[in-house]
């Protein structure tokens, strides 16, 4: 199959593009997202929340190419056989940037593995709460936090919240979080780039990323929703993008999140005591 824009062989379907044109397509897509949603300025103090996986590696590579400078924070959750390798990759990729690694063990005095031996909650829920807390802490002094969330992540989050009928959580989605006192704005430059396109970009540029799956992800609700959306995408190509674009047009415009702060730690929270403090048993 030939590239839609030249005579070379294509490497992608929908659209059918050769390596060079695929590269331009991704760069343009990210640049358009940044412009359309006013995500970043060249003068912003930028912190990338990275894991060393394909998404954060791709977003850092793209930001560098687009002329943005940034520091990096990574979170070590304490998951045996998982995080060590991706952090090694991150150190290779981040050799020109300031890199800070915060760990659950050091900050909360318990690793995720240790927490899961004691508690029956789902790991993703605990992990998400602690990760957000540490990233918010590291973001102090920065104008914006960049994450590697992609189109698949967003489509999954939207459908998960629809299934839970959680309009308040919908308000936290979108390519840019709303400005709120005490929170650094979080942005998603890969918002319209699918997971498959991210991997194609990473492999094409030979970026050092290894395949690794979080051991707690297997039985997660997100994983189940992701497989369901992927089966819809297979039978009806374009489903993921439709979910996200319809969401942007409708739900985002009508939801409003309550504004208050945690009575224990003072962080912005939708509850009187934030989830992190609740998990740490401070209530």
């Amino acid at each position: 199959m030939k590239c839609e824009q030249c005579a070379k062989n294509s490497i992608s379907s929908q659209p059918s593009l050769c390596a060079d044109h695929f590269d331009s397509y991704i760069v343009d897509k990210v640049q358009n997202t940044i412009r359309t949603f006013s995500l970043l300025n060249k003068t912003d103090r930028v912190l990338v929340a990275a894991s060393g996986g394909k998404d954060s590696t791709a977003v850092m590579h793209l930001l560098e190419r687009l002329g943005y400078s940034f520091d990096i924070v990574a979170i070590d959750e304490g998951i045996k056989g998982y995080r060590k390798g991706t952090l090694e990759d991150l150190r290779v990729n981040a050799k020109n940037n300031s890199l800070k690694i915060l760990s659950f063990k050091k900050e909360f005095d318990i690793s995720l593995d240790e927490h899961m031996k004691k508690e029956k909650q789902h790991a993703c829920r605990v992990c998400g709460v602690f990760r957000r807390k540490l990233i918010a802490k590291a973001a102090n002094g920065y104008d914006v936090v960049v994450t590697g969330h992609n189109l698949d992540d967003e489509a999954q989050a939207i459908m998960m919240n629809v299934l839970k009928n959680n309009a308040a959580l919908m308000n936290r989605l979108g390519p840019k979080t709303r400005e709120q006192e005490g929170f650094t704005v979080r942005i998603k430059p890969l918002y319209f780039v699918s997971e498959k396109e991210v991997l194609t970009y990473v492999v094409m540029h030979k970026l050092p990323v290894r395949f690794v799956e979080c051991p707690y992800q297997q039985d997660s609700f997100r994983g189940e929703v992701g497989r369901w959306i992927n089966s819809l995408e297979k039978s009806s190509p374009g489903t993921k993008e439709k979910i996200v674009r319809k969401f942007l047009r409708t739900t985002l415009a009508v939801t409003e999140e309550p504004k208050q702060t945690c009575s224990r730690c003072g962080a912005p929270s939708a509850r009187s005591v934030c989830r992190s403090c609740t998990l740490q048993g401070r209530v």
Binding site: M1, I11, S16, C124, E195, M204, F211, V212, Y216
Partner: peptide, 23 residues
């Protein structure tokens, strides 16, 4: 890297890399 409609035959070596990773 090849697109989805790329022809393959018995002499080829094919890898399916997982796009689902992380967590």
């Amino acid at each position: 890297i090849v697109p989805e409609d790329e022809p393959v035959n018995n002499n080829d070596k094919i890898s399916f890399l997982s796009v689902v990773s992380g967590g």
